[in-house]
C-alpha cells in the first residue's frame, strides 16, 4: 500500500506521466512481442529488500538479476520458481511470463508473484496483490501483470513466494517414450522429449531419487547432462519441428525459431484490447510491444 522506499519514488518519478516509456531489464529477451519502438528506457530498482525465510517470501527490486537473487536465497536453502537466460532480471522474467523449466515441481510463474509495486500509465504508484502467501482480497492484478510485457503497468518492486531447494536433483535421459517415464516416477520436475529421447529431472529426498533412478535404469535411462535448449518457443501441435524439444505436460516446444503468432479468438483479442486501453488509454507503456505477438 505504501511506497515508502526512496528507490520506488525515484522509479515513479522517472516513469513520469507522459511520453512513451518502457523498463529495460537484462534485455535477454528484448524482442519478445516486438521491440521498444524508441520508447524512453527507465530502470527498475535493484537489490534484495527483505528476505523472510519463516514467511517464505522475499521482497526484491524488479531490476535485480535472477542470478543475484538465487545466490542470496541459496544461503538460506531457498529458491524462487522462476528461470531465464543468463542476465535476466526478476522484472523481465515476470514481464515475459514463461514458467520455469522445472514447472512440474515449482509451479507456474504466475503463482510466484504475491505483490507488485507498480507505476501506472498515469504516473501514479499502486500496489497489486498482498504480502502474504495466501490472499484473495480484491482482483488478481498480479496474475494479469505476469506475461503482460509491461503494457499494463511498469513493475518496480515485488514480493515473491520462495520454496525450499530440493535436497537431491539429477537429470537422466534415454530412448524411451515420455509416458513410460511419467508412469514410473512421482512428480518429476521436468520431462523433455525430442521425438526419440526423453530427458527427466528428478528431485527430492536422496533415497527417493535413488529409488526412481533405479526404476528408470531398467527402462534404459542413464545419468545425463542437463539438455541444452534452443532459444525459440512454440506451442505443440502434435508434430515436433526439426531440432524441437517438447516440455511434456506444458505443451511448449523449444525450437530454433519462434513460430508465428498463436491462434487466439477475436473475442479474447477484443477483451485484451479493452484491458490494455483501460490501463493505458494513451498507449504510452511499451507501445511497440504486443503480448499476442510472440515474434522474437
Amino acid at each position: 500500500m505504501t511506497v515508502g522506499d526512496g528507490r520506488m519514488e525515484a522509479f515513479r518519478s522517472e516513469v513520469g506521466d507522459s511520453g512513451a516509456v518502457c523498463v529495460r531489464g537484462g534485455a535477454t529477451r528484448w524482442g519478445v512481442g516486438g521491440g521498444s519502438a524508441g520508447a524512453r528506457e527507465v530502470s527498475a530498482p535493484v537489490g534484495i529488500m527483505a528476505l523472510e525465510p519463516a514467511e517464505m517470501t522475499v521482497m526484491v527490486g524488479a531490476g535485480t538479476t535472477l542470478t543475484e537473487l538465487a545466490g542470496e536465497l541459496a544461503v538460506h536453502g531457498l529458491e524462487v520458481g522462476m528461470d531465464g537466460p543468463q542476465g535476466s532480471t526478476v522484472g523481465g522474467a515476470l514481464a515475459v511470463g514463461r514458467s520455469a523449466l522445472r514447472r512440474r515441481r515449482v509451479g507456474q510463474i504466475a503463482d510466484v508473484l504475491l505483490q507488485a509495486d507498480c507505476v501506472g500509465a498515469d504516473g501514479v504508484a499502486f500496489t497489486a496483490g498482498g504480502p502474504t502467501v495466501k490472499n484473495v482480497t480484491g482482483y488478481d492484478l498480479c496474475r494479469l501483470l505476469v506475461g503482460s510485457l509491461g503494457t499494463l503497468a511498469l513493475v518496480g518492486r515485488v514480493i515473491l513466494r520462495t520454496r525450499p531447494v530440493p535436497v537431491c536433483s539429477v537429470w537422466l535421459a534415454g530412448e524411451v517414450e515420455p509416458d513410460l517415464v511419467l508412469e514410473a516416477t512421482y512428480r518429476p520436475a521436468s520431462v523433455l522429449w525430442d521425438g526419440a529421447r526423453t530427458s527427466v529431472l528428478l528431485e527430492g529426498h536422496g533415497a527417493d531419487v535413488d529409488q526412481m533412478v533405479e526404476t528408470l535404469a531398467r527402462l534404459g535411462l542413464a545419468a545425463a547432462e542437463p539438455p541444452v535448449l534452443a532459444p525459440g518457443r512454440g506451442r505443440w501441435s502434435g508434430l515436433l519441428p526439426d531440432g524441437g524439444v517438447l516440455e511434456v505436460g506444458a505443451g511448449v516446444v523449444h525450437q530454433p525459431d519462434d513460430s508465428g503468432p498463436p491462434i487466439v479468438s477475436e473475442g479474447v483479442l477484443n477483451l485484451a484490447a479493452r484491458m490494455r486501453a483501460s490501463f493505458d488509454p494513451s498507449g504510452r507503456l511499451n507501445p511497440g510491444r504486443d503480448p499476442y505477438s510472440r515474434a522474437a
Binding site: R143, L144, V146, R235, A250, G251, V252, V264, A272
Partner: peptide
C-alpha cells in the same frame, strides 16, 4: 489446456 498464458493471463 497447456498452462502458460498466451498474451494476457485473462
Amino acid at each position: 489446456e497447456e498452462g502458460d498464458s498466451v498474451g494476457y493471463d485473462l
